[in-house]
Computed example of a mutant assay.
Amino acid sequence: MKSHRVARLSGNRLHLQEGPSDLVIAAFGGPSQTERAYAAAEDAFDGLLAELTGELRMLRQPLAAQPPALTGATARRMARACWAFRAQYITPMAAVAGAVADTVMAAMIAAAPRLERAYVNNGGDIAILVTPGHPLDIGVVPSLARARPEGFIRLHAAPHAAQHFRGIATSGWRGRSFSRGIADAVTVLARSAAEADAAATVIANATDVQDGAVLRRPAQELDPDSDLRHLPVTVDVGPLSPKAITAALNSGARTAEALLRDGLIEGALLSVADEWRSVGESSFALVRPTDTAP
C-alpha cells in the first residue's frame, strides 16, 4: 500500500507528497515519454521517506574523516553532496531535499530517455533536465518569505550534450531549514540538486554578521531533533544598516567564489534586504520577467 499522496496539477504536472517531501514534477517530450516518466517518478518516490528514516541517526551526524556507512542510494547522494564541506560542521541532512529530487529525476530519465526537458521541484530544491534546443526558465525569489519570482534563470544544455542534468536550490534564514546566516535567499546552480542544496546551505550560513538587529537561538531549543544541535541559528532579522548588508553579502560572495573556483557550483545569487549579489554570471544570468521568452 502506498503511503504518499499523488495528484495531477494544471499543465499536466504531477504532485507527490509525503511528510516533508512535497514534489511538483513536469516532464516534456511527447505523451508516452511523459507518462513513463511520471510512472517512474511515483515508483521511485514510494517508500523513499521510510528508507531515509531508517538511516536518520547517521544522516544527522556531522561528517568526519571517514564517509558514513550508508546503504540507501538517496542517503549516499546526500553524503556525497556534503562531503566537500566536511571541514566545517555539516551533516548529510543539508542535502536531503535536493537528493530526493535527484533520485526521482534519475528514475524518470532511465524510464523515458527521450524526454526533452523536465524538472522535479522539492520545495524549491530542483533537479533539472534540459536538452539542446529545449531550455528551461526557473524562477528566482529575493526572499523565501515572498513566493513570487522576481527574475528567472534560463538554463540551456551544455554544447554537444545530448542531455544535461543540473540542479538549483535556495536557502535562507526564512526557509524550512535552519540557517546560521542572514540571507533572505541564496540560490545556487550546480551539477545536481543535492550539490546545489548543500552549497546553498553553506553560502547562506556564510552571510553571517554580528548585529543587534539579528536574533539567534540554539537550534535544539527550536527543534530538539535538529542536526545542528547547540549551534545558534537565525530566528529574526530586523532593519539592517547598509554596512551590515554589505558585510553579509561580501562574506557570502567570498564563499560562493571559492566554491566556483573549486568547481563545486556553477553560479550563485545572494539576496540580503533586497540587495543582490551575483557570482558566476556567465552561467547564471538573471533575466527579468519582461525579458523572458514566452
Rank of each mutant, 00 (worst) to 15 (best):
A44L: 02
A40D: 00
G29C: 10
R13K: 15
L14Y: 03
M58V: 04
M1G: 14
A37Y: 11
S21E: 12
A37K: 09
E51H: 11
R13Q: 10
R13A: 06
L9I: 07
S10Y: 08
S10H: 12
S3L: 15
Q61I: 02
G11L: 01
V24F: 01
L49D: 13
L52M: 04
E35V: 04
N12Q: 14
S10D: 15
E35R: 15
M58D: 14
L59Y: 11
L23E: 14
S10W: 07
G29S: 05
E51D: 15
L23A: 13
K2C: 06
A40S: 04
L16A: 08
G30P: 05
A39G: 13
L49K: 14
R5C: 05
A27F: 03
A39V: 09
H4Q: 13
G30I: 00
L23M: 07
G11Y: 00
L14P: 11
L48N: 00
S32P: 01
R5V: 03
G30C: 01
M58P: 00
F45T: 07
L23Y: 10
V24A: 13
A26K: 04
M1I: 11
R60E: 10
E18R: 12
E55V: 03
Q17G: 09
S21V: 10
Y38V: 03
E42S: 11
D22K: 09
R36H: 01
N12V: 01
A40N: 03
L16N: 11
D22I: 02
S32V: 12
R8G: 06
G47A: 12
E42Q: 09
G30F: 01
H15K: 04
A27Y: 02
L52E: 00
S32M: 14
V6C: 08
A44C: 01
L14M: 03
K2D: 10
R57K: 14
D43F: 05
L16Y: 09
E35M: 14
E18C: 04
V6T: 14
